[in-house]
Design a protein around this nucleic acid. Structure first.
Length: 855
RNA sequence: GCCCGGGUGGUGGAAUGGCAGACACGAAGGUCUUAGAAGCCUUUGCCGCAAGGUGUGCAGGUUCGAGUCCUGUCCCGGGCACCA
């Protein structure tokens, strides 16, 4: 079965074993009830035109080692791969070339597949998925409908980047320095109709359930910060001469006596009504300036605050005092209520603003001791707050909230930074929404006919003064595929290219069957048909990656996104490895969808990823991030050609801790390559036959046997903890010892090859076969170590005098303290340091250290 | 500014509070060879001929003992960006 090379010809060996695995479907995962499973998942790649980046094989090698190790440990391993293939670059390519984005996407996938196969990963290729395949996105659409029916999707106007010159919506990454990336044209914020998912309904659970997952603490903290829970109160400030009060959110109701002015976000709906005629021009100018600002300009202005007085006042509910209302862009419409009560004595930003505009500063919190330097944001007790003076601030917070609540002008609330998720794009290359828009009257007819399920309250949108209602396609009509278009250019009015297809867009729609006919044709008379306009938005790239780990369980199922049996058996990934750049968005979105599916009883567990690990970034040789412009990009193909896949895999793992950010060093590759060549030479003679010093019953040095068992233990422990660099060190130590040994048992070397095989699987298979191993090395059960062999009869005891290392000696295990002290006194290097001194204390750690404190 | 990482030889890195520098890379010397490559042997933190001293960004502290724990500080990297 092995090749017949006499030397380590990786160019022959690696393709040979890859063909063997493929022909035998060696990595196929079968649902086997009763057999323990292990599901190890990579973050699937976006198949970019640039091909595989060296960061991909880093994470993929790590999971591949785990997958192969767990198979050897007897687990039924699911290790799949697929393509997250919707996305902006493919669309841009289509716009440029006029070819369908699918064509380019499929070419890129073919290239990625070739590259990944050349790396010898043990993926179950029968489970390959592609998010752009209608058989896949049918279920993405189906899950969206579940959200829609539960009232978790709605339509709203949201600001997006709009480029008047290009007549298109731009993504954040397409806007550079306030200009379009293509052409450098000016861009502006413009409100467009968008689908939004109600992720905020899950904020509390997304936060609370973080305690149940084995994730890096830093990632958990980032998610916590992103969700941004804060407890406080909503307070109502009366507006003289107006019926409705001004509502603000504050985390510090205790500082209410220190409120000397109010600030509204420039976009706040009350600004127009509140502005007095004399201030109108100034307010208008300020609002225009704020609206035109790019994010970058706003950031630049972070150093100085700016704002304008509206001329109006509000009444502080605690003391009836009137305070002026300003507008300023340091207050955001999207957080809280878009309005704040400013307490310049105890808030940095308010203080800066007050100083700039000469507004009064009244301290109301005093520290327990010493003088407070304003702004003072620490703990303390209340002052200048009649009726509350002397109270600790936390007590005052509760009391003031309660007392104002009793008067109906306050409500204790919890606020989140988390916003609802903008879930639509005005693009072609994404999943079409399985939604059509109908009139209110037609919606009522459909509802009356009992067709559904429909959301409890209809999702509506007012277009040109007419209310439209969103009607779902029936599940049986899925997938809704992308229609062919003439041009991938946006429509120019803010809608996707799909809006340019009148025959597809304007239809007669049968809500029962999902059937559609162009509206230009006569309306069918049989059954219920309504006049409809299709949704032209498409879903964002996140949609497909929110649930792909579930499709891997049962990728070809036409009846469900996965069968109940598959879900119950495979569950969710036991280990998920990917970059930390997804610490918030992808991982939060996927958790949200998973919890919705869990609530629907469709998945067995409440969290999708029990154990998560982030691989670190590999920097270029120059220590900078790899990028085309810097010219420091490493292509895996090059290394595979020059040194082979096994060397590349081993090197990626030897570079340093998996989670660390580390620079690429081409010279280091030689080191691991030499190691593999050494292993080859120790196994095989120059003629390619088994090396002369190996035999089944060789007189092997017990020290070598012990080292083998130590190596078995350490490599196993390190793999489980994803410490691959130290596992490789240990294998190098064994190989060095093997080289020096005059003889070794073939069985010992075969056991060693089993340890090496997950890291360097091609060489592992080749040498295993040539040393008489039966079948594939990966089918052999993982070697066990003998604990008895690991307990040595003698240990090295280190002698210290006053904490300084002075000597060492081999002593039998179980040597007592008195005996150890006697040995130290008799030690030629130690004795001089004890001479003429009084022994004051003895610290003895058996088998490790004897510290004699003298004086 | 805030949050999170991290500072250990010429380099990547190793080290449950117990011998700092495992394992590699690089370098130097040697061996083999007609010669080279590969391999093999030796050396390789710094100072010192040596004995020995010294050493984990810096300054303190806890401890019999600190790279590791604590306090302060400097530097580097990453993330967030006025969140009331």
């Amino acid at each position: 079965m092995a090749t017949s090379c006499t030397e380590y010809h990786f160019r022959e060996i690696e393709p040979h074993w890859q063909a063997y695995w493929e022909a035998n479907r060696s990595f196929r995962a079968e649902l086997t009830p009763g057999k323990p499973k292990y599901y190890v998942l990579d973050m699937f790649p976006y198949p970019s035109g640039a091909g595989l980046h060296i960061g991909h094989p880093e994470g993929y090698t790590a999971t591949d080692i785990l997958a192969r190790y767990q198979r050897a440990k007897g687990r039924n391993v699911l290790h799949p791969i697929g393509w997250d293939a919707f996305g902006l670059p493919a669309e841009q390519h289509a716009v440029k070339t006029g070819t369908h984005p699918a064509t380019n996407t499929q070419a890129n996938i073919a290239n990625f597949r070739r590259q990944i196969k050349a790396l010898g990963f043990s993926y179950d290729w029968d489970r390959e998925i592609d998010t752009t395949d209608p058989r896949y996105f049918r279920w993405t659409q189906w899950i969206f409908l579940q959200l829609f029916q539960r009232g978790l999707a709605y339509v709203d106007e949201r600001p997006v980047w709009w480029c008047p010159e290009l007549r298109t919506v731009l993504a954040n990454e397409e806007v550079v320095d306030g200009k379009s990336e293509v052409g450098g044209f000016p861009v502006e914020r413009r409100n467009l109709r968008q689908w939004v998912l109600r992720i905020t309904a899950y904020a509390e659970r997304l936060l609370a359930d973080l305690k149940d997952v084995d994730w890096p603490d830093s990632t958990k903290r980032m998610q916590e910060a992103w969700i941004g829970r804060s407890e406080g109160a909503e307070l109502l400030f009366a507006l003289p001469g107006r019926p409705e009060p001004l509502k603000v959110f504050t985390t510090r109701p205790d500082t209410l006596f220190g409120c000397t002015y109010m600030v509204l976000a420039p976009e706040h709906p009350l600004v127009d009504a509140l502005t007095v005629p004399a201030q109108r021009a100034a307010v208008e100018a300020y609002r225009r300036a704020a609206a035109a600002k790019s994010d970058l300009e706003r950031t630049d202005l972070a150093k100085g605050k700016s704002g304008v007085f509206t001329g109006a006042c509000a009444v502080n509910p605690i003391n009836g005092r009137e305070v002026p209302i300003w507008i300023a862009d340091y207050v955001l419409l999207g957080y809280g209520t878009g309005a704040i009560m400013a307490v310049p004595a105890h808030d940095d930003r308010d203080h800066e603003f007050a100083v700039q505009y000469g507004l009064p500063v009244i301290p109301v919190i005093a520290p327990e001791s010493g003088e407070a330097k304003l702004p003072y944001t620490g703990a303390g007790h209340l002052v200048n707050s009649p009726g509350y003076d002397g109270l600790p601030w936390e007590d005052a917070k509760r009391r003031i909230t309660a007392e104002l609540a009793a008067r109906g002008v306050a409500k204790a609330t919890v606020n989140y930074k988390l916003r609802d998720w903008l879930f639509s794009r005005q693009r072609y290359w994404g999943e079409p929404f399985p939604i059509v828009w109908v009139s209110e009257a037609d919606y009522a007819r459909v509802r009356a006919a009992g067709i559904g399920p429909l959301p409890e309250s209809p999702v509506t949108y007012v277009q040109d003064g007419v209310r439209q209602c969103a009607l779902p396609l029936p599940a049986a009509a899925l997938p809704l595929e992308l229609p062919p278009v003439q041009s991938y250019l946006p429509s120019g009015n803010g809608e996707s290219p799909l809006a340019q297809l009148p025959a597809w867009l304007e239809i007669w729609f049968n809500p029962q069957t999902g059937a559609a006919l162009p509206a230009a044709q006569p309306c069918p008379t049989e059954g219920l048909w309504v006049r409809a306009r299709r949704e032209t938005n498409t879903m964002p790239q996140w949609a497909g990656s929110c649930w792909y780990y579930l499709r891997f369980l049962d990728p070809a199922n036409p009846e469900a996104f996965a069968s109940r049996a598959a879900l119950d058996y495979w569950g969710s990934p036991d280990l998920y490895v990917g970059g930390a750049e997804h610490a918030v968005l992808h991982l939060l979105y996927a958790r949200f969808w998973h919890k919705v599916l869990f609530d629907l009883g469709l998945v067995p567990e409440a969290e999708p990823f029990r154990r998560l690990f982030h691989q670190g970034i590999i920097l270029g040789e120059d220590g900078e991030k790899m990028s085309k412009s810097r010219g420091n990009v490493v292509n895996p193909d090059t290394i595979i050609q020059s040194h082979g896949t096994d060397t590349l895999r081993l090197y990626l793992m030897f570079l340093g801790p998996l989670e660390a950010m580390k620079p690429w060093n081409p010279r280091g590759i030689e080191g691991v390559h030499r190691f593999l060549q050494k292993v080859w030479r120790e196994c095989l003679g120059p003629d390619g036959a088994v090396a002369a010093k190996l035999s089944p019953d060789a007189a092997e040095d017990p020290a070598l046997t012990r080292l083998l068992h130590e190596t078995i233990r350490k490599v196993g422990d390190d793999i489980e903890a994803l410490r691959f660099n130290t596992a490789i060190s240990q294998m190098m130590i064994f190989a060095n010892a093997l080289q020096k040994a005059p003889a070794a048992r073939t069985g010992s070397v075969r056991a060693f090859l089993q340890l090496l095989a997950p890291f360097a699987p091609h060489l592992g298979e080749e040498l295993w076969a040539r040393l008489g191993g039966t079948g594939s090395v990966m089918a052999a059960p993982w070697p066990a170590y003998d604990p008895a062999l690991l307990t040595a009869s003698e240990v090295k005891l280190v002698f210290q005098v006053n904490g300084k290392h002075r000597g060492e000696q081999l002593v039998p295990v179980g040597t007592g303290q008195e005996e150890a002290v006697a040995l130290a006194r008799g030690h030629a290097k130690v004795a001089p340091h004890l001479e003429g001194k009084e022994l004051r204390r003895v610290i003895y750690v058996p088998g490790k250290i004897l510290n004699l404190v003298v004086g």
